[in-house]
Design a protein around this nucleic acid. Structure first.
Lengths: 341, 341
DNA sequence: TTGTAAGCGTTATCAC
DNA sequence: GTGATAACGCTTACAA
């Protein structure tokens, strides 16, 4: 069905090798031959087979990208950033949604290796992802971690400064008068969760507010997790005056739970989180957030990977930490004051 | 560097063929041989090379997916739906963002063909995309169009019912009292733009409201396009009382322009659009929209494609039209009434 | 039950 | 300038 180089060669009355030379723009071809081959290519709609090429060159011009979910407003831009950078570097991207599932992540990794991607960009599900990833690293396989680090890993990564971001976000809450701040976060097995909890604790400590374990709720960091954890928050007496959720999905669930209970934000409860949502901010400039440069993270991550693939990276792991931006909007409104409890 | 089947075979003291049989779970292998090969596979961390496999079988287990932008809240879910369906069918997805650029789209198509994807899922940039796509169709290449159709094409597609959706949306505006309704839409070269304009006209006609060309603004359907077109709307005198934008990106720009002019929605201007935004709706249930089942569109589109790839599809093109849902929220609020002009 | 030979589409190498 | 040959890693067809 597909037209091969041999078809082109026959059509042009030359050898496959000569046709190959024309396709690849090599020198030392007579003008006449060149023309005939080009005509044959056009006439037959020939498109070179990269699969066959890759078999020889061991280069597939393809990388794998694994994120929990493209629809997540944080990972969407990460994917776009990576894809754009990849295109510019002449690479294609095999996209995989791990759905935060370690088993699925592992399957995808194996599958991508089997597809002979030249490198892997992974936003790991959790610390446990290292079991799937470390054997790659031992083999020197080009790998860059996105958004989360892995313990004891000598691996390139690019993340945002979660601890500092979290600290500044909580400092802001404290500055506008909050003292009882609930924190909805990951289980203890992700670097982002640990760092954000650390920042939360640091902010409290430097304000002289005692850390209270009972204000920290660990959950799955999706909408339903945020919803359930917020229900637990709302069972506290007295209620805290603010909730800080670890990311953009948990905050949605939190909002849902608050609304169900008839609580308004920020009048009855302040609500802040990590991650801004592109566009949403314009439509409804409401949530105070710690914005992460997601698209930059994706494109720089891809650049790190391409350097590694090209062998320009050296044996030491490179670690990039991007800064986050506090965007103050209405959800912890100063003018509204802090709810009295 | 990579471990090959030959390495495994040598390690196990058998021929490559025998090793291959074990890898593929064929019958007729002695228990002892089987064990030795499996040990070798484990010892060497062997992962089969699908590239080589694909060269023989002509199957790469890969499809291409081209959308304008993964970050677009409509296409994000489309991508997830397609990717999930692909995984279930044992396929991987090469994701490409055309950025609404015909040239880029064309490059991607050629590149994906060269990567020997087994089929293509494309949300075409515009009618002009057919120049890149029709030669594929002639060759019988498996192709399914997403979201937009192409004129004169005998090609599978899956879209939403834009005309009916648009009509119902405008009927709603009319029902709550609007008569001067501006419409921000695509240039005339996309099926969605044409259909939505048609629905707009139908709704006006059946309400006995004359169609006024000067209320229709054609623009690029992104944020900046929506912004500029809305500025033009705001130069009208008298102002219309409602704006209906063709999609979720234009509405963001529209909101921006309205806010800059100090106009509130819906008090000063009603605002409705196609496409809902997942999560946003929870955080801020504000925009009245015509929701499209984006994820379903992606997963059904993938299913159509896999049927075609498997040769189960027949020569006739299949055309699926999904229905849309009107979600009434606050942005055309009845209680607020229609602004007097 | 296992192995040999050929070939998928392309390119590197070396002749001519 | 151009072409024959082998090879990339694997599987199909056939042989032993």
């Amino acid at each position: 069905m597909a037209v091969t180089l041999n078809d082109v060669a026959k059509h042009a009355g030359v050898s496959a090798m000569t046709a190959s030379r024309v396709v690849n723009g090599r020198h030392g071809i007579s003008a006449d031959t060149q023309r005939r081959v080009e005509e044959a290519i056009a006439a037959l709609d020939y498109v070179p087979n990269r699969i066959a090429r890759g078999l020889i060159s061991q280069k597939t011009q393809t990388i794998g990208l694994i994120v929990p979910d493209v629809v997540n407003p944080f990972f969407g831009p990460v994917v776009r950033g990576a894809e754009t950078a990849a295109r510019r570097a002449g690479y294609r991207v095999l996209l995989c949604n791990s759905e935060g599932d370690l088993r699925l992540e592992r399957e995808y990794i194996e599958d991508l290796i089997s597809h002979r991607v030249e490198g892997l960009l992974v936003a790991p599900v959790s610390d446990h992802s290292r079991h799937s990833l470390f054997s790659l690293l031992r083999g020197g396989f080009p790998l860059v971690l996105l958004d989360r680090t892995l313990p004891e890993s000598e691996c390139d990564f690019i993340v945002c400064d979660s601890a500092s971001g979290s600290r500044r976000l909580v400092e802001h809450l404290i500055a506008v008068g909050h003292r009882d701040i609930a924190h909805l976060t990951d289980a203890d097995d992700t670097s982002t969760g640990r760092e954000r909890l650390k920042g939360y604790q640091e902010a409290l400590a430097s304000a002289g507010i005692p850390y209270r374990e009972e204000l920290v709720f660990r959950t799955t960091v999706d909408q339903i997790g945020g919803y359930r954890a917020t229900q637990q928050v709302l069972a506290l007496a007295p209620l805290p005056t603010a909730i800080f959720t670890v990311n953009n999905m948990t905050v949605v669930g939190a909002m849902q739970a608050l609304r169900e209970r008839g609580l308004s934000v920020p009048q009855d409860m302040a609500l802040v989180c990590f991650d801004d949502v592109e566009h949403l901010a314009v439509l409804s400039p409401f949530l105070t957030v710690m914005n992460q440069p997601a698209e930059t993270l994706g494109s720089l991550g891809a650049q790190l990977l391409f350097e590694r693939i090209a062998g320009k990276a050296g044996p030491r792991s490179r670690r990039i930490v991007l800064q986050t931006d506090l965007i103050v909007r209405l959800s912890c409104c100063v003018k509204c004051g802090v709810p009295a409890r």
